[in-house]
Simulated scan of single mutants.
Amino acid sequence: MSEQAWPDPDGVSRATEAFRAAFDAAPEQVWASPGRVNLVGEHTDYNGGLALPIALPHRTFAAIAPRSDRTVRLVSGLDDGHRWEGTLDDIRPGGVSDWVAYCAGPAWALREDGVELSGFDLALASCVPTGAGLSSSAAVECAVALALTSLAGESTDDDAARARLAALCVRAENEVAGAPTGGMDQATSLRAKAGHALLLDCRDDSVEHVALDLEAAGLALLVVDTRVHHSLADGQYGRRRTTCETAAARLGVTQLGDLDSIDTENGRQTALARLDGEEARRARHVLTEIARVREVVDAARAQDWTRMGTAMDASHESLRVDYEVSCVELDVAVEAARAAGALGARMTGGGFGGSAIALVPLDLTEQVAGAVTAAARERGLREPAFHVAVPSASGERVA
């Protein structure tokens, strides 16, 4: 498989080398935080629903040192073209953009929350694929937030502290980077547990860890990066969020996820019948996707992998038809994976490109990857990249 994760020593070395090259000094600390892949529960986070992601072994590494002034200097990787210098006062909504907003945005959010920060020097290195729907932006935000919180002398250890940091990273992404995302990505990067999926209830941000040892069951979660990049700030994502908010208001609830509390399926369908057109389709996806999260959790606990695969298939169809966030590259990957022996497959992430996932018998992993590649070539699409996703740990200090 391609797109291998870096071992921590390799990531530390890369981030430290970038720091030394940029600032002619050694960093004081290095932190790492992962990307994520979502098993099921897409576009439910900002609707107050359930999601079931896992943290990837692929991480962003942040090498950092404090300064005695208010200057902030950033370097992304080893590329001399990705540098920025300013002050803490420059980091605010409308003050920075592009990659700087993701790297520096957490500093603004922490200061808004009352954390005293000095200036800092920061260098990043990452093996999380960008634009692949695997939360490369959240990995950056969370690694930086952890590093800055540590430099400020505040705790990063307990779950309450991690939940607070996740909320601040969401605020940074929404207000500084201008991407109207929910909180699933940051929660996963900061609160996941190795060997487990993270059952996240976005109504109250509570979490539960669901054991997921696919290898012991003779299975793998194959991630297919279509190499069609997407941006969450391009308007498509925001329009769907606005439609859901409008639909919720029409139904007299704060978020569409509130409808999940209706006791009966008939009651939920009666509520949906009050909507029509696009609003009805978007709301139907949200409610059925929340139900699929519960289905996959139950399947994981019962080790009923066929049932899990069936729910994954249904999720993709709902995202394709009702939420309309799939694309030809994702559909081709999903269909080819199923035909080659996957128990289930679906797009993952915000959509409009990015990645698909397939639940695959271990002995068929290469076969499924080959079939997906062949299908892409036959359709004249970009050749995809692959890796096997293993439920991994959340962000931590690595040096």
Rank of each mutant, 00 (worst) to 15 (best):
L50S: 11
T254I: 12
N266A: 15
E245V: 10
A63R: 02
A389E: 08
G370K: 11
V12F: 12
T373S: 15
L287S: 00
E324F: 10
L198R: 03
T149R: 13
A132C: 12
A139H: 03
P57Y: 00
R191M: 15
C244R: 07
S97R: 14
A283P: 15
A375N: 07
T246C: 00
D159K: 06
S394W: 05
A25Y: 06
S97Q: 09
L199M: 08
A314F: 08
R307A: 14
L330M: 01
T288E: 13
E141I: 04
A18F: 01
F352Q: 01
A143N: 05
Y237L: 07
E329G: 11
A5K: 04
A247E: 03
L110I: 03
E278F: 11
Y237M: 08
R239P: 00
S76Q: 13
V372C: 10
D113L: 14
G86H: 11
C169N: 07
R20C: 14
A55Y: 00
L148C: 07
G380R: 08
T264D: 06
T242G: 05
R83P: 02
A283K: 10
T226N: 03
G309K: 01
A18L: 07
T226C: 00
L39F: 12
G119R: 06
A192D: 10
P66Q: 08
G350W: 08
V334F: 00
D201R: 08
A25Q: 06
P129H: 12
G235Y: 12
D205E: 15
D89H: 05
G380C: 07
E245W: 07
S315P: 05
G341F: 06
G277L: 09
L50T: 09
D260N: 15
R379K: 14
E324H: 10
S150G: 11
V372Q: 06
L134Y: 01
A291T: 12
E289T: 00
A125K: 04
D45S: 06
A15I: 04
M308C: 12
H58Y: 01
H209D: 13
R292N: 07
A145H: 04
D158E: 13
C202Y: 11
R274H: 15
E116S: 15
S355I: 08
V144E: 03
W6A: 05
S206V: 02
T306F: 06
E383T: 15
R397N: 14
S261D: 13
I290Q: 10
Y237E: 09
Y323N: 05
V388E: 13
R67V: 00
R379F: 07
R379H: 10
V37W: 01
M308K: 08
V100I: 12
V176A: 06
H285E: 03
A101I: 07
